[in-house]
């Protein structure tokens, strides 16, 4: 059974989710998430070792698409909807680290 979610957990989760929280929000969210997770304890406590997980309600598989070229978007229309663009590309501020 999982332990009660802490303020530090919430801070870490907010960072992972790219959200900034004020101290007050951190307190509020910690309490609210704890309440929801506490409610979920009934589920966490069930012994379901022999039950397979269902990732998906639809018992289907092998849905494949033929390798045929379809339409593309108009670049000007796409870049016009972007917050910032330059030279046919999307512009973003300095990127601090390389991709993982």
């Amino acid at each position: 059974m999982a332990e009660r979610i802490t303020r530090d957990d919430v801070a870490k989760v907010a960072q992972l989710a790219r959200l900034a929280l004020t101290d007050d929000e951190l307190d509020t969210f910690t309490g609210q998430l704890a309440a929801v997770l506490e409610h979920a304890e009934d589920v966490a406590a069930l012994d379901l070792a022999d039950v397979a997980p269902t990732a998906h309600p639809l018992q289907l598989g092998n849905v494949l698409r033929p390798d045929v070229v379809g339409p593309t978007l108009d670049r000007d229309e796409v870049l016009a909807a972007a917050p910032s663009a330059e030279d046919g590309r999307f512009r973003v501020p300095t990127i601090l680290g390389e991709a993982p």
Partner: peptide, 27 residues
């Protein structure tokens, strides 16, 4: 709130207890 709850439920160390378990309940 829901993004944080979901991020937590998927994060390392909690996947099995939360998301994985919930998928079994779904079954």
């Amino acid at each position: 709130r829901r993004i944080m709850l979901g991020t937590y439920a998927l994060s390392a160390g909690y996947y099995d207890a939360f998301y994985g378990q919930a998928q079994r309940v779904r079954t």
